[in-house]
């Protein structure tokens, strides 16, 4: 376990050495503050559009940080040839995968916590009330979702040739799932066989990342999601994360490093 934690620590340190987080955070802060400084009909209490925009920026930034960070982990080790001394420690390939995954997931969680803290301060200062538990639940669900994305990206980095192609493909896949995932069953019903069965199969196979998107609820003050439903969603996420990590390990185990 110590080996895995050592690998995890290296990845987390990488997060604050690189400029991605700072640039995205400043961009999010500047856009949110600029939107917040606008006043409609001389009413300073209008706040939901600012919350909506800030949440959207947090989602985009978190996905950017997670995918770009996870996509370069294994290819960078191979390119700089540090993978050889690493595996000679001795560290198994499974431990490398687990360490990289945990590092990326914890690092994205840290970045996400910073973003949510900013979100809570900005909205709290305008709304004058602090639904901390709602924000915590939204953060937790998004972080769980980032776990699936991290595992998917690690698998992509084993399958695809370069980090750039991994990042591009993963962005298309994740955006596709987030925008279309929950509507695939409706689309399937409007198609004839065999297309209907095919779309329905895709609907049940893909990891439904949009399950963890509670932005609409947070922005419109719908209150907390039942914790039991959150637990079910977490189990669903754990299953997919485990599956992707297993596939990554299987792929990495047979992969030539030279």
């Amino acid at each position: 376990m110590n080996t895995i934690w050592a690998l995890t620590g290296v990845v987390i340190k990488e997060l604050y050495r690189r400029k991605d987080l700072y640039v995205l955070f400043v961009l999010t802060a500047v856009i949110t503050l600029a939107a917040g400084s606008m006043e409609f009909f001389h009413d300073p209490n209008i706040v939901r559009y600012v919350k909506d925009l800030c949440m959207l920026l947090i989602w985009v930034s978190a996905l950017l940080i997670t995918i770009t960070m996870a996509a370069r982990q294994i290819p960078a080790e191979r390119e700089s040839r540090t993978i050889f001394p690493l595996l000679a420690k001795p560290v198994t390939r499974g431990q490398v995968i687990l360490g990289k995954f945990l590092g990326c997931w914890l690092a994205s969680g840290t970045a996400l916590a910073v973003f949510y803290l900013f979100f809570a301060v900005i909205t709290g200062s305008r709304e004058h009330y602090w639904p901390v538990l709602d924000y915590f639940q939204a953060f937790l669900l998004q972080w769980i979702m980032l776990g699936i994305v991290t595992a998917m990206t690690l698998l992509g980095s084993i399958v695809f040739a370069a980090p750039s192609s991994t990042v591009t493909i993963l962005f298309i896949v994740v955006a596709g799932i987030l925008f279309l995932g929950r509507h695939l069953n409706t689309v399937a019903l409007h198609n004839a066989e065999p297309l209907r069965s095919l779309i329905y199969t895709i609907y049940f196979i893909i990891p439904h990342l949009e399950l963890f998107d509670v932005r609409e609820r947070v922005v419109n003050d719908w209150g907390l999601v039942n914790w039991l439903d959150c637990g079910l969603a977490a189990l669903y996420a754990a299953a997919y994360t485990g599956l992707f990590l297993l596939l990554t390990w299987l792929g990495f185990r047979r992969k030539s490093l030279t």
């Binding site: 669900l141 929950r182 069953n185 609907y203 049940f204 439904h208 949009e210 399950l211 963890f212 998107d213 509670v214 609409e216 609820r217 419109n220 003050d221 719908w222 209150g223 999601v225 039942n226 439903d229 079910l232 969603a233 669903y236």
Partner: peptide
């Protein structure tokens, strides 16, 4: 079942802001 679970995470009731909103 997936759609049923999904509906717990999104606004799932018809309400108007002018008459009480979600709560």
């Amino acid at each position: 079942w997936l759609a049923a679970l999904d509906r717990q995470f999104v606004p799932n009731r018809h309400t108007h802001l002018s008459s009480g909103g979600p709560s």
